[in-house]
């Protein structure tokens, strides 16, 4: 099994030469997953904050379901989005199946529960600490929710990163709704799956190394940001 050293050499060569095919795949991966993270954060952070500070019947059940949905299988999400977006489906008129847009939709659905559930936990912890003070100052629940979203911003970074990690690493959802079309919807994970089944292990492993390096780099950057900011703001 001499594939690993070979794979690293291959990956290094692909990166060093700036192989256009590789660059395209990496950029599409980043574009799809980062767009999905952005959308899921825009929706998930307020939803998490709202559940954290709101009181309503069935709140516990909602939290349990939300936490459980963090473990949604990507292929199932992909299948549901596929059915919704297919020609005969309710959203078929948009005609976005097998485009990057469909992949963004699927990944957004996949990571929305992760970001919402983790931010709900972070905001609720802050709410317990801040509640009396904010109420005393005259903040209603809505304005308290926005205050907490901003004040817990460094903890929420972790929630958003968890979402990105999941989106960048999953293969099932993008494979089903994207179709892994070369030059159109092929991303790192689907390319790895394809090259592996074709037997081109060095290329697959090379792509894997790049994927992991990207995720590690992003997490390291976020971690440092959080460290520095927390030292500064307490």
């Amino acid at each position: 099994m001499n594939d690993l050293p070979e794979a690293f050499r291959h990956a290094a060569m692909l990166v060093a030469t700036g192989d256009p095919g590789l660059v395209e795949i990496v950029l599409l991966s980043l574009r799809v997953s980062l767009t999905a993270v952005l959308l899921a954060a825009l929706l998930g952070l307020p939803v998490g904050a709202a559940i954290a500070v709101a009181q309503f019947p069935g709140r516990r059940a909602v939290i349990v379901v939300l936490n459980a949905m963090m473990g949604l299988p990507p292929v199932v999400v992909g299948l549901v989005i596929y059915l919704l977006l297919s020609r005969s489906g309710p959203l078929g008129a948009f005609g976005i199946l097998f485009t990057p847009a469909a992949m963004v939709v699927a990944q957004t659905m996949l990571i929305l529960p992760i970001i919402a559930a983790l931010s709900r936990q972070a905001i609720e912890d802050a709410w317990i600490e801040y509640q009396e003070q904010l109420r005393s100052l005259g903040a209603g629940r809505l304005s308290a929710a926005f205050t907490l979203l901003w004040d817990a911003r460094f903890s929420l970074l972790t929630a958003v990163l968890a979402g990105f990690g999941r989106a960048a690493a999953e293969v099932g959802a993008v494979m089903i709704v994207g179709g892994n079309i070369d030059g159109v919807t092929r991303v790192m994970t689907t390319a790895i799956a394809l090259e592996t089944s074709k037997g081109d292990l060095p290329l697959a492993l090379g792509l894997g190394v790049i994927l992991i390096a990207l995720v590690v780099a992003l997490n390291a950057g976020a971690y440092l940001t959080k460290e520095i900011a927390q030292r500064r703001y307490g």
């Binding site: 600490e129 009396e132 003070q133 904010l134 005393s136 004040d151 460094f154 703001y233 307490g234």
Partner: peptide, 9 residues
């Protein structure tokens, strides 16, 4: 309050 709560700002 006995223990004041300050915002991160």
């Amino acid at each position: 309050f006995q223990r004041p709560v300050m915002l991160r700002r």
